[in-house]
Design a protein around this nucleic acid. Sequence first.
RNA 1: GGGCGUAUAGCUCAGUGGUAGAGCACUAUGUUGACAUCGUAGGGGUCGCAAGUUCAAUCCUUGCUACGCCCACCA
Length: 900
Amino acid sequence: MTDTIPDTATPEALAKTFEPAAIEAKWYRHWESAGAFRPARPDATPFTIVNPPPNVTGSLHIGHALDNTLQDVVIRYERLRGKDALWVVGTDHAGIATQMVVERQLEARQDKRSNYTREDFITKVWEWKAESGGTITGQLRRLGCSMDWSREQFTMDPHFTRAVVKVFVDLFNKGLIYRDKRLVNWDPRLKTAISDLEVETREMKGGFWRFRYPLADGVVRADGLDYIEVATTRPETMLADMLVAVHPDDARYQSVIGAEILQPLTGRRLRVVADDHADPALGSGAVKITPGHDFNDFDVGKRAGIKPADMLNMFDAEARVVQTADGLVPAEYVGLDRFDARTAVVAAMKEGGFLVPHVDKDGAEHDFEPRTIQTPYGDRGGVVIEPWLTDQWYVDAHTLAQAPMAAVRSGAIEIVPKTWEKTFFNWMENIQPWCVSRQLWWGHQIPAWYDAQGTAYVADSEATAQALAGTGVVLTRDPDVLDTWFSSALWPFATLGWPDDSELVKRHYPNDLLISGFDILFFWDARMAMQGIEFMGQVPWRRLYLHGLVRAADGQKMSKSKGNVVDPLGLIDQYGADALRFFMCAMESQGRDVKMDERRVEGYRNFATKLWNAARFCQANGIAASTTLAAPAATHAVNRWIIGEVVETLAALDAALADLRFDAAANVIYQFAWGTFCDWYIEFIKGNFDDETKAVAGWVLDQILVMLHPFMPFVTEELWHALGERHDDLIVAQWPAPAAHVDPAAKAEVEWLIALVSGFRTAKNELGLPPGARLEAWLPEPSEATRAIIAGNGPVIDRLARLSAIHLAPAPAGAAMQVGAGDATLIVPLEGLIDVAAERARLEKALAAAQKEAKALEGRLNNASFVERAKPEAVDKARADHAHHAAEATRLSAALARLG
RNA sequence: GGGCGUAUAGCUCAGUGGUAGAGCACUAUGUUGACAUCGUAGGGGUCGCAAGUUCAAUCCUUGCUACGCCCACCA
């Protein structure tokens, strides 16, 4: 590949305005082609992050932008700090999602999956991936993500498949994967089983029907009634009812336990059983039991001695009514959709006089009582989930969950923010078997083969399975594939080459950090922890950082149906990737969702522009790239001061990033670059570009570029090269090492100057004087320190405070403006030019404020118990503050007295 | 029914046991050697409500209210 960067040996003058689009593509191409994302650093400490693999069908949404920005900040930071930083990237084959995309394409051409063989369909999926699968990877590049594309992974890569098969086989051999017949969450639209996590409960308007089930054989209850009333929200399931349950202690039904019900529609005889599941306080206290179509009923059925294989099933894979094994479903129901069946069943029961009407509060009768029903929906298919009796593969998640819980308890895994630990434990402690088989074509096919009797042989190849089964036994492979999350759970090590004993695995496992949204804590993070510890013997990552959702400006969740989705690429087009990234970081405070605020993105675009212009100014004044990592030697106070400010900023930034406080980190560098460097330092040095100042300014600007680079990689890289010839790109430069300290004297001096300048600006503003007016001030009896500062900073005082002279002598009599700086009060005679009343009001307001503070502190200091019980530091601080405010009050009183 | 989170300036959010900050918005003003995507200055908050702990609470405890999220089988 060719290097597209212009000759950096002769930097060109920066353009007047900063155009993000013009530089972003250029630098990304350069970095990638130069291998800058993963420089060879064999002797450096490794640092590893794996990227949550986006669905190969996906395109970049605002949540990806947040997630990947945070990761990129960390990886660029560690790379700048000299680590062997590896950010693994790739995509997920996303079984259901991808198969749906390709099927939709077929449907658009009046075609369908069943017109193809499995092999041909899978070929089509691969073709689709080759054409369209790269969308999101291109978009991650636009965001500036410095991932190791040279090793881009895909969860269906051959080596990944080997890892998946090995894990499945090993878990099976350890008894941690097994096949079982039980109720599963079935998606009738996708015609596959899904896991508990893929079911989302929605509140839907539904009904509550009550029916009379007549007792058979002339049996009557103790109270003389010849029926039992049952209630249900799903009347259609009565076609597969097998029992009626009552509570063992319920006096009303003691005499009929063991008797039989004659189900009115099917004529099936339903045994009345005693079971704790029936709650005497609810409804009639009796409940109809459909073991094949309800999770609770399944358990009741088993307790009543019904084997899963004998439980009646009344639905096909698309949830249409089929004949039950006992042949008792009347023909008119067979073939009906489940919701049509509901209507038909209710009508028939009503007609037969078995429906107990609901009487509303106005006395009107209805077939049912309206109720809000917690209804299970498939998160992908979007239709109501049907509990269905099937054979599926299950992972013994309970066993696998123990080690990850211990790892979090011991601190081997640190969850950030810590509040998520409780959620993690709560889920892990109550974890259920994980259904991992899916009735799809696209995915990792389960490595199990069956003989004619249905015995499973699980092996890494058909040959091995055949060997297990014995020669001559005819084997058929399990047609199902694995849950996508089964393979992505292996991401932290399979991407590094496992199960091969590769150098990468040794060097980069465990990973250092995982950053993910909390929404996939259970789906992905917890399962990585389970598989990682089980197969690698170590935690997958030392830290787990969970961030929130990006919400719309109104606080709502973004969704296509609401039409409030913000496209991150549109924001990048408009404001630049740097601005979007900085926004994400600045808004990412731990434990809180990020609310979209486009104006703020705009504000950070302005920040990039501000930096650009500061660099332009430096460039125009001969300030260029620094030549040393350490701070240059400096004698001028402003230079010594700004070096100290860099030292403090760096410390604060390092501390924030160590704690993964992205917001604090972003604010620290923002504040320094704009508030300290641009607003004050540049203003101070205007007019004195001597060699020392140029060296210091160039060095400070470089430190800003390096410190800001993780957040705003593009503009910083551009400026880095614009300011001079560089040995390296900024992306692989060195993190600041100032080898300098804060100079308290310089700090005090500059802070005095800042107070002076601010004081005059404020005073002029409040008195209505032109801000540009140049004045002369009198300062009688200045302290030695103040005298020295004034002597050493004439030009600055002239230019910024707009004072052409400070006379160290008593001021002439007459009306004057008085401005304080430190312990000094500068007097500017302005007889006839100022409104004396306004100046008095101004000073009185300040005096009142100082007196109020002083008084409050005095009150506290006069409180004996404060002085006795408060921490000594607090008392000392109160004394110091009091002295300061009292002195200020004295100074202002004197100023007022002088005003007359 | 459990669990968690959030309530601080008009908006979006930081924050600390010693009586509050940022960005944006707002008001006034400005082109003084980069920047109007800017400069300068200013106004604005009883830190949701109540009680408790403490010398001292916006910050700790408890209760309440409102909003949000997650988990859970009420037929």
